[in-house]
Design a binder for these strands. Structure first.
Lengths: 214, 214, 214, 214
DNA sequence: TATGAATGAGCATTCATTCAT
DNA sequence: CATGAATGAATGCTCATTCAT
């Protein structure tokens, strides 16, 4: 038994315990390798109860994805103060993103690795969340361009690619920061912000973008 | 039967057929969902023969990873002419990368999605190849910095993060370019090159990096 | 929920609701496929209440069999007027039988199909009812023979077989009449009466038995 | 283990062993209660082999139905000599029917009880066979009527009901004869033949139909 | 009287893997 | 070189049944 057996809990509580166990198991083992037995065991309940509340392995996985996706986007949005200039908003968003993924490695694994790897009901679920992030970043880029000069001449297709690349770099760095021993969320955010805002070219001119002191 | 049944072929040929079938199956179904039955069938051989040549499902998957990793790094290296300036080399490397991944979607899926998703024997295998690419990019960044001015003051940890971000962005864009209908390998490379070399900041000054005409 | 949820009903009423739900479910799904969940749901009560009143699935099924068997034999007996000649009594009994089975298809399915299909506690239960019908028919045959002439020389074993065949034919025709679109209970009764009373031989002499006008 | 373990048999032989075991198990336990474990065990093989050859429980059951249905109709047809008068043909058919069902009680249980009791893929399968028997009997009745006089005035709907009743009576008698201790197939056939050909009315005139001496 | 919470045990199905030929 | 025959061990899922309130 993976957890202390607290009997007779209200359904909502038990469901969260199950989701906790499921996220951990799915995140570490993968969708197919994770067994309902192990999840139930880790949640401290019997398998039939998992099925009674979550219906099926597919539904359970989907519920995990939804919960983790909502938590991540909520964390990012909560970390951003809307009034600030675009670069400050991007910086805060990145920090929130790296912080949340570092604090929830299994949830991040479910979203980034497992859900996208396994067929169609799931990939679509994450795509929704990812799109939300891409849109958020796209908007910031457009706003920043408008702030920089009157002529917002960035072509739309280009911006989409840039946002995609930025989000992709962030996702990749999140995994890297989690794996590398001494890399904090703040450092990861700074590296990426640097890359995004200044580019390699500027770096070579020795004019790196510096994170604000907060 | 997935392939014409040609009896009595030399071992090397049979092995490649099996690997072809395995890459396709693993790439589309995932490691766990792919069954040895399906692979053997697609390869046009009996299951015991697969075991005779490739030992086990793990070994077969590992062999797939190794073959596809070697092919990808070979393609990237082959695409780069060593004498050129660093930015040209990076540009050529990115083009080769996007071209190869677009032409071998199943192999890329095996490397990028499946291998990293499933536990430890496999992730390490891909990490080796990825590290090679990261090193390659890191080197280019350092060289470029040295070319740009005498003072190569980029701190080492910073460069590692940048290379990581660049490779991550490339991987992410490769998936995006494969999925998006009208995005060619060249366009993906240009977008990323732009991003990497000029950064968002420069873009806003309307000074995008332009790919050379070749 | 299959029924309006009326709280706090007297036990007898609740039990009938449960039996109604059970007969319907057992009749349509079969003993094994019917789930206590579905039955409780259809009855509009919680599962523990079903167990409180009916003890177990076996007991519930047995209770269904008994109720439906009693209803069927009651209907047959009620349909027969004792004073009449034997052939009239048989005719009335058959009509009552076909009418009742047509009006209670689920109950009839429980008795004829499900109960006899599943092992020993149940088959015996139906056998009791069936025996009652066989005895009823046997008696009529014997009486009819006595009425026809003084010498009741029909051997006993023979009569048993005939009654068995007649009841079997009736049971089979009941299913057929229920399934066939335009066959009424009366028509089914007439067909069987014809067969029983006159035999095929007489039919070929063009002397069919004709049902009385009532 | 239910059978001597003969290793490495050709597929066709193993399949028959599996069907033997399945018919016995399904016939005695019913479709739902029969477990694939028990069937495999009784057949002396492992469960995966049953699935390899017969695909699923549904398919296995269907295969049983088909085999037993074919065997029964073959037995009936083989027992009938086509040149004889209709009543002789009916007599021979009934004898073959009762003999075969008595010799294959499990097969008969599968066809008569289990298959018809469980939903739609199966009932249809038996209906086909039953229809064949009904048609066979219907034909005999029509021929007999034509032989008896020139005027074949039996209405078609009537004949259908009669054939149905006759087959139903036969099916019911088959179960009865199997259960009753001293009733032979020949006796059952005679009883039914009597009933069918002469009817109860004739019997009361003391003119029973007598089976030919063969 | 009535129920929400919970489970032990079983079942159909699949899969990687091996042996005898 | 190549395969038809065969299986041990899981795995997702369901169900009759009970307990605590």
């Amino acid at each position: 038994m993976g957890a202390v057996k607290n009997k007779r809990m209200p359904r909502a509580v038990r469901e969260q315990q199950m989701l906790d166990a499921a996220v951990r198991t799915f995140g570490q083992r993968g969708y197919r390798s994770a067994s309902m037995d192990e999840i139930a065991d880790l949640a401290g309940v019997s398998k039939p109860l998992v099925y009674l509340y979550l219906n099926s392995k597919e539904d359970l996985f989907t519920a995990c994805i939804r919960r983790e996706a909502a938590a991540l986007t909520a964390a990012v949005h909560a970390g951003v103060r809307p009034g600030l200039p675009a670069d400050r908003q991007l910086w805060e968003g990145l920090r929130a993103f790296f912080t949340h993924t570092a604090e929830n490695p299994d949830g991040w694994a479910v979203l980034h690795r497992q859900a996208r790897t396994h067929g169609e009901p799931f990939a679509a679920e994450v795509a929704v969340m990812r799109e939300e992030l891409v849109v958020f970043v796209t908007e910031l880029i457009v706003v920043a361009a408008r702030e920089a000069h009157r002529d917002p001449s960035l072509p739309e297709g280009e911006v989409a690619g840039l946002a995609e690349a930025l989000v992709g770099a962030a996702e990749s760095l999140a995994a890297w920061a989690n794996a590398a021993p001494g890399v904090s969320a703040k450092q990861a955010a700074a590296t990426l912000m640097n890359f995004a805002w200044a580019g390699l070219g500027d770096l070579m001119e020795n004019r790196p973008w510096t994170p604000p002191q907060d």
